[in-house]
């Protein structure tokens, strides 16, 4: 079964779809959590602390958090490896392009065309993001247990904002194509559903991008400081 999933183009695409949807689910929760920043430092820092105590006393400190981290890491790794391998395959399957250059060439939406490079941007962003706000390696404030102050410090730098805003725009595009694509990869058809899926994909892309962007914009405009 693992073989049938990982060794075939269709199976591997299903793995990509599921891992992508897992990340998407996480991102919805993550975005909503981020909005707590508008309630002030105490609320936000308290929320961050609560994340570490979920399930207590049945579970230990940070157990839930680590489960989520392991699942996300698995999803990211599967998603990237599958994307890389399938992309290599797709490029090898069309070694010679068409000489014709003109208006009638392949029409793809911008979101479809940017899945690969947009994905690479997201991958690099994930690394940056962890170094910035989880390990605090590159954070200008870098005070453990004080995420509010760390976030404000990060979004007070031009590079922090530039990287974040670019990545969130890439995320919106990735979801716009990816959500409906995942449904098709998993065999969800029917014309009636298709229209709904497109609307959901665009809605999710818009809400996530706007929700994530609200935080740096609030810091830049002084709403959050």
């Amino acid at each position: 079964m693992v073989n049938l999933l990982w060794r075939s183009t269709i199976g591997k695409k299903a793995v990509m779809a599921v891992s992508g949807l897992v990340m998407l689910l996480y991102l919805v929760a993550h975005m909503l959590g981020n909005l707590k920043i508008f309630f002030g430092p105490d609320d936000f820092n308290g929320y961050a602390h609560w994340l570490r105590t979920i399930g207590e006393p049945a579970l230990g400190y940070e157990w839930t958090l680590w489960v989520v981290r392991v699942v996300l890491l698995a999803a990211v790794v599967l998603h990237i490896v599958a994307a890389y391998q399938l992309s290599r395959r797709d490029i090898a399957a069309r070694p010679v392009g068409y000489a014709h250059r003109g208006a009638s060439r392949l029409r793809m939406t911008f979101a479809t065309r940017t899945m690969r490079w947009g994905g690479v941007i997201l991958g690099l962003f994930i690394v940056w993001h962890i170094l910035d706000l989880t390990t605090l390696t590159v954070n200008p404030h870098a005070e453990p247990g004080h995420p509010y102050e760390n976030v404000v410090a990060s979004f007070s730098t031009w590079y922090g904002n530039t990287i974040y805003i670019a990545a969130m725009l890439a995320l919106g595009l990735h979801i716009r194509h990816g959500f409906a694509a995942a449904a098709r990869s998993l065999g969800v058809t029917s014309a009636r559903l298709a229209a709904g899926l497109r609307v959901t994909a665009n809605g999710l892309a818009l809400v996530l991008t706007a929700g994530f962007l609200a935080v740096p914009l609030a810091v830049m405009t002084g709403v959050v400081s």
């Binding site: 090898a92 069309r94 479809t112 899945m115």
Partner: peptide, 11 residues
């Protein structure tokens, strides 16, 4: 897959 066709990217 064995014949070297690519996969679907929903284009």
């Amino acid at each position: 897959d064995d014949e070297g066709f690519g996969g679907c990217t929903q284009v």
